[in-house]
């Protein structure tokens, strides 16, 4: 039991760390890519994107890649 929980918490930590690394570039370059309305938006808005970008990074990474291909 303990080892399962230990690995779950470790996974959570790695996932969140990857999310944090992803979130900054996403909010500055990714967001305007997938949604043109986000171009030139103020700093406050970009900072507000960070929490969700951290949490949902795999999904957003896919969206970003798709937007780059088109």
């Amino acid at each position: 039991m303990e080892s399962i929980i230990q690995s779950f918490v470790t996974f959570l930590g790695v996932y969140a760390a990857a999310g944090i690394v992803f979130a900054l570039p996403f909010s500055f370059w990714g967001a305007p890519r997938i949604d043109p309305a986000a171009k030139g938006s103020p700093l406050g808005f970009r900072l507000l994107l960070l929490p969700a970008a951290t949490a949902l990074w795999p999904l957003l990474l896919i969206k970003w890649i798709k937007a780059l291909q088109t």
């Binding site: 967001a31 808005f45 929490p51 969206k63």
Partner: peptide
């Protein structure tokens, strides 16, 4: 509650 608060901006409504 975190996921809801984090995605409460209209940007997420539109893009999710």
């Amino acid at each position: 509650l975190f996921l809801m608060a984090a995605t409460s901006h209209d940007f997420w409504l539109k893009n999710l």
